[in-house]
């Protein structure tokens, strides 16, 4: 088994991957790059805690090999905002208490960030009545679109409230 390499753009910085091709993008971020904001909840694409944004799309980083991401642009929670400079969605999560233990939170926030773009692009979801139409951004739509991110503390209502606040403020500006 040969060591292989790739260069990934992580939060705007070129990062070298060199190592075991078995390493997932998730473990590369957490163990090699020490970007532990991305969480491992199940390691099998069943919880969404590891959600990151790759080339604009949200994915489960646990079900993707680091070596496959040569040249990809990856945004993790660390690239969305910092405690000193919170993104609007992060501020909204804090003010609406969109989390309790905080473990699913980076995944929820990365997921929501990409989800809002999907919605803006008019993507339908399983609850869109007529898939050919542009979906209305109802709470029902938001819930379905966020269903890939489990929260065992049960902060779901608050998460939706936080996302809605961001949508409204973006609409207002």
């Amino acid at each position: 088994m040969a060591t292989q390499s790739a260069t990934l753009d992580v939060n705007g910085e070129a990062r070298e991957f060199q190592g075991d091709p078995r390493q997932t993008l998730l473990d590369f971020l957490r163990l090699d790059l020490k970007l532990t904001g991305t969480k491992k909840g199940c390691d099998h694409g069943q919880c969404g805690a590891c959600t990151v944004i790759v080339n604009g799309r949200r994915i489960n980083s646990c079900l993707s090999l680091a070596i496959m991401h040569d040249g990809d642009q990856i945004t993790t929670i660390e690239g969305i905002g910092t405690p000193e400079n919170l993104a609007a969605i992060q501020r909204a999560f804090v003010s609406h208490d969109g989390f309790q233990c905080g473990y699913c939170t980076p995944g929820q926030i990365c997921s929501a960030t990409a989800m809002l773009k999907e919605l803006a692009a008019g993507w339908p979801s399983a609850v869109t009545e007529a898939v050919a139409d542009t979906p209305a951004p109802s709470d029902k739509e938001l819930r379905e679109r966020m269903s890939g991110n489990l929260c065992r503390c049960g902060a779901y209502s608050n998460i939706i409230a936080a996302i809605r606040e961001v949508m409204q403020s973006e609409k207002g500006t």
């Binding site: 969404g48 999907e118 399983a126 898939v131 050919a132 269903s147 890939g148």
Partner: peptide
């Protein structure tokens, strides 16, 4: 797909999660 084969769009959207469908 959405206009002419809504069944296909609906079935895909009923599966997995948005993150998984992106891959």
């Amino acid at each position: 797909i959405r206009a002419d084969y809504p069944l296909l769009a609906k079935a895909i959207l009923a599966g997995a999660s948005p993150q998984l469908r992106n891959k």
